[in-house]
């Protein structure tokens, strides 16, 4: 696609701008900021990726992944700010899920060990893990707050912290992973996934595009479940002290 053709895609930005102005929706400023940011960010990433692919050096691959983990942590930690030590818990989770998925993919030679595969897949894994982390933390902190009485009841009856927080933990893990599982049930029927569509548009064989999409879907399934469970089991102990007393969430 030439830059001239690319610039024509701005018509799709003009449509909401005109509608917003006509109907006085007040979305013009945010739409413009979002458009400018996406152009700059994506072009920058495109050039960085081009360089990393050309150089094909492990240090650059690791640096890219660390950058992704840093950005994902920075974004997700706001949702879990009330939980003690949430930053390192998120870092541990993202690093673990990245190592787990890449070990399987590269160890079983499912994909070749080249930056063209490692970086985009890492981006999808860490990005999805971040969204799941945010969903989980949002639900978990709400559950903990609203069910403090139940937590203390179980403690008073001689339950352990794990028993006292079990329902809240399981509810939050389920609630955060259900969207991933549910969306997989209708995939291909309602919409074609973005990555697959992109490959088909770029001229790839549709069956091969489907194979890669399935690979990604299955990875994201693991990512979703492992992220929620790991964050949950790393987070709940900080809600109690060594005398098994329930501590308030940080305000």
């Amino acid at each position: 696609m030439s830059y001239l053709t690319l610039s024509l895609t701005l018509i799709f930005v003009l449509i909401p701008l005109i509608l917003s102005r006509t109907l006085k929706l007040g979305l013009e400023k945010d739409t413009l900021i979002a458009t400018i940011r996406s152009i700059i960010q994506l072009l920058a990433v495109g050039y960085v990726l081009q360089y990393v692919f050309e150089v094909d050096n492990i240090i650059f691959i690791v640096l890219m992944i660390l950058l992704m983990i840093g950005a994902a942590t920075q974004n997700a930690r706001k949702k879990g700010a009330t939980i003690h030590g949430i930053t390192w818990k998120l870092i541990v989770t993202f690093v673990f899920i990245e190592v787990l998925t890449q070990s399987i993919l590269l160890g079983f030679q499912i994909v070749p060990p080249t930056p063209q595969y490692i970086i985009p897949i890492s981006g999808m894994v860490i990005g999805n893990s971040m969204v799941l982390g945010i969903l989980f933390l949002n639900r978990f902190t709400a559950e903990v707050e609203s069910r403090q009485d139940e937590t203390e009841l179980i403690l008073t009856l001689g339950g352990t912290p794990k028993q006292a927080i079990h329902t809240q933990l399981i509810t939050s893990i389920k609630a955060s992973t259900i969207p991933t599982i549910e969306s997989q049930k209708t995939i291909g029927l309602v919409q074609l996934p973005g990555m697959m569509s992109g490959q088909i548009i770029a001229g790839a064989d549709p069956v091969q595009a489907v194979q890669f999409q399935l690979l990604i879907l299955f990875i994201l399934l693991t990512t979703a479940v492992v992220t929620s469970i790991m964050l949950g089991f790393l987070s709940y102990p900080t809600l109690f002290n060594n005398r098994m007393q329930f501590l308030k969430l940080k305000s």
Binding site: D149, E150, E152, L153, I154, L155, T156, L157, G158, G159, T160, T167, R243, M244, Q245
Partner: peptide
Amino acid sequence: NPVELRRNVGIALQSATMVKGSVLENLDLP
């Protein structure tokens, strides 16, 4: 041990909080 202590020093609170489930499940909770 906190668990042993709480089993030996029981407490019935004014709020009478119930967990989700039947009367039997609540009675069975301890």
